[in-house]
Amino acid sequence: MAKTVAETIKEITQQHLEQNNGLLFGQAITAVGWVNNTVPNCRNIVEFPMADVSNMGIACGAAISGRRPIIVIRFQDFMWLNSSPLVNYAAKSKDIFGTSTPIFVRSLAQKNAGCVHAAVLHSLFMHMPGFRVCSPMTPNEYQEVWHDFMVHDDPMYVSEHRTSFGNTEELKNNYDQADVTLIPISDSRFNVNEAVRILAKENIACNVAHVMWLKPFKNDHILKALASSKCGLVIDAGFEICGAAQSIAYSLIWASDKPVKALGLYDKSVGVTPETENATPDAQRIAEVVREIYKKTIKRDQYKENVR
């Protein structure tokens, strides 16, 4: 039976803690389901008090000893507190001191969790030099991320999403002749197939090029998909303005010479009720934006043709 993402994380963690003498830190780790059953019950787990800033500093201090700690941040919202030792020390230590701070930050997001527990904040860490940033959503991707962490010595920000924890399947890219390439990040990756089906009924064909590595950004497969389509749409589970989607769209425009738009959360606080929710773009919203950019692209192409 195929492993879920949660089982994969648990297995990797257990091996690290028991065989590598690694460390795992976090708050309320050993209670309430062991972080969605992603943490094993074994040695080298240290429960942190509710002292987020010092906790991350302590974890960074442990990282410079070489034990490659994992720190679990149950909700990415808490990164506003936890980020200062990471940004100010862990991300800089290799550049300034020549010594690294390899720490694996498991930062979790959750759907429908309102204003305190729904944030996806990988964009913050993409912005700062010194981090590797990723958002794995499949078992193999998680294995790849862990391997990458162990062969490099940078702090790794892993933008997880609880939506992925039960997933057993790998998410495939496709490079057919298409009208639009969808380039989803985080849990929006689970919404794109439905958007593709909706749009196919309207004779708008879509490629999909999934994004797992945010920094360093890996774009070869995306450029391949974009090359066989007219335009692209990057979709993220974080805020759109100054976020990962806009940053990636900008770099893809220059790399592909194709129009690429960004789609993310609206510029408003996330509420808890359906009326105030500000969720990851769903299939309907993705389809709506695709129609808009597709029309614009067609118009632009027709205009170019007429000018010729």
Binding site: G57, I58, A62, A63, I64, R67, S84, N88, Y89, F97
Partner: peptide, 21 residues
Amino acid sequence: YGHHGLIGENIPLATGHALAT
């Protein structure tokens, strides 16, 4: 081990070092 300018950041760093080593 040095620090990067957050006043007192060396305190949690040292604490983590003592724990890990």
